[in-house]
Write a protein that binds this DNA or RNA. Structure first.
Length: 217
DNA sequence: TGTGTCAACCAGAGCT
DNA sequence: AGCTCTGGTTGACACA
């Protein structure tokens, strides 16, 4: 074990029976850490037998091994939270751009409707389907499909981006928009996004049933 | 000298 | 009761 700067002669004992000057000694050796890491990869929980075995092999106090595992779990969790945060931030950006696309498309449709209404009031009754066909040569008669085609003719791609919206069919867009609006309205508060994605967070832990049932692959 | 990292510790909770 | 866990803190050390 290598450490420096602890060269005084204090000889009172700590709770571990170690000299007090040893209680805050610096780091474990590279070899010790390598072995501990290897063991941690196989399973981040420490049963008493494994603890004793590691302590014996590494020439450490069993308590030191236990503490190393505790600290290592804490570090792992912190890293995992950072990763999770980054992932959610990415999803937020995707949702925002998706919303922009929806907004733009919505405005386009509104303008189209207004134009049609304008014509409607100045001339004879208009067959909407026919009129729409005229304004967009390759559209079908079905209004839902028409909407779909309109979406394709603009830059909107329903299957691109978040799976979150994969189930939103064009005809349902109006229904879903308020939800998205709400989401984006709350974009200043990241916790709201966290809440909305909470149900998707079951994969947070790499093992089933949460952190207590861990078993690394 | 400020800051980050890490071993060690503590308190409180849960499990057997 | 004894053990282990998590979350937070402390103190020593390394480094820019």
């Amino acid at each position: 074990m290598s450490f420096s700067g602890m060269d005084n002669g204090m000889d009172e004992l700590s709770d571990d029976g170690m000299p007090a000057w040893e209680t805050k000694r610096r780091s474990l050796s590279k070899e010790q850490v390598r072995t501990l890491e290897k063991s941690f990869e196989q399973g981040n929980k420490l049963d008493p037998e494994k603890k004793m075995q590691l302590a014996m092999v590494l020439g450490l106090q069993p308590r030191q091994v236990a503490i190393w595992f505790q600290n290592r779990r804490a570090r792992w969790k912190t890293k995992q939270l950072e990763k999770d945060y980054d992932g959610l931030r990415g999803q937020l950006e995707a949702i925002k751009s998706e919303n922009e696309a929806l907004r733009a498309h919505n405005e386009k449709l509104q303008a189209e409707i207004l134009a049609l209404k304008g014509r409607d009031s100045t001339s004879e009754p208009i067959n909407l389907n026919k009129e729409t066909e005229a304004s967009c040569s390759n559209r079908s008669e079905n209004s839902s499909e028409r909407t779909s085609m309109a979406m394709e003719s603009s830059s909107f791609h329903p299957h691109r981006g978040l799976a979150l919206f994969a189930s939103v069919r064009p005809a349902e867009m109006e229904m879903h928009c308020p939800k998205i609006e709400h989401c984006i309205a709350a974009e200043g508060s990241f916790s709201n996004l966290l809440c909305s994605l909470e149900d998707h967070a079951s994969t947070f832990w790499p093992w089933p049933d949460g952190p207590d049932q861990q078993s690394f692959h």
